[in-house]
Computed example of a mutant assay.
Amino acid sequence: MPVFRIVRRTLLPPEEAWRRLTDWERQGSAVPLTRTVIDTAPPTRVGTIFTARSGVGRLTVDDPMEVTLWRPPVPDRPALVRLEKRGRVVRGWAELEVRPLPGGGSEIHWRESLRVTGLPRLFDPAVASAGRAVFGRALDRLLR
């Protein structure tokens, strides 16, 4: 599975960066042609399930995910959420980490491993490059 990583710094305090990154509906709206449906009652916790549906009309792909690690920010400790992707087409995982910076602000680390069913491993570099581009722009939108 191709793995990619995106790192961004922001002036946002860790609590606000975390809130923005883990607002699943907002995250869906930051990815082109995607909307997110939450399948479990709030608040987010281990076991929360949601689906990102991407596409137009009947040409859509569902990306169901489950929160398997939920560690919100506390002073002087990075926050971390891990999502397991359990779809028929999209498989893998994502980790979103928010690290406090000395003097204020946050550093965000988005790590993701994607496998698209039926796509040969020959395309792994292209999948990783596309993932970095799409999710990098989404991350920038979420942090604005």
Rank of each mutant, 00 (worst) to 15 (best):
M1R: 13
P2A: 12
P2T: 07
P2L: 01
V3Q: 12
R5G: 05
V7A: 10
T10G: 10
L11V: 11
P13K: 10
P13M: 06
P13G: 08
P14K: 02
E16A: 13
A17D: 04
W18C: 02
R20M: 10
T22E: 09
T22I: 05
T22L: 13
D23R: 04
W24T: 09
E25Q: 15
E25R: 15
E25A: 14
R26H: 13
R26L: 14
R26Y: 05
G28I: 05
G28R: 11
A30S: 14
V31H: 07
L33N: 12
L33H: 10
L33K: 09
L33Y: 11
T34Y: 04
T34G: 10
T34P: 06
R35T: 12
I38F: 02
I38K: 12
T40S: 10
A41D: 15
A41C: 01
P43A: 00
T44W: 05
T44P: 15
R45V: 06
I49G: 00
A52D: 14
A52L: 07
R53L: 11
V56H: 07
V56G: 02
G57P: 07
G57H: 03
R58P: 15
R58W: 14
L59T: 03
V61Y: 04
P64S: 07
V67M: 00
T68V: 15
T68P: 03
T68F: 03
R71E: 15
V74N: 00
V74H: 00
P75A: 08
D76I: 01
R77N: 01
P78M: 02
A79Y: 00
L80G: 00
V81R: 10
V81C: 11
V81T: 13
R82Y: 01
E84T: 12
K85N: 04
R86M: 05
G87V: 00
V89A: 07
V89C: 03
L96M: 13
L96V: 08
L96Y: 10
E97G: 00
V98L: 06
V98Y: 04
P100S: 01
L101N: 10
P102L: 08
E107D: 06
E107L: 06
I108H: 00
I108K: 04
R111C: 06
E112L: 01
E112F: 00
E112S: 08
E112G: 03
S113N: 09
S113C: 13
L114A: 01
R115L: 10
R115K: 13
V116S: 08
G118V: 11
G118A: 06
F123L: 14
F123Q: 03
D124Q: 11
D124T: 01
A126V: 15
A126Q: 05
A128Y: 11
A128F: 03
S129L: 15
A130P: 03
A130N: 04
G131R: 01
A133W: 11
R137H: 13
A138I: 04
L139D: 08
L139Y: 09
L142Y: 12
L143M: 12
L143E: 10
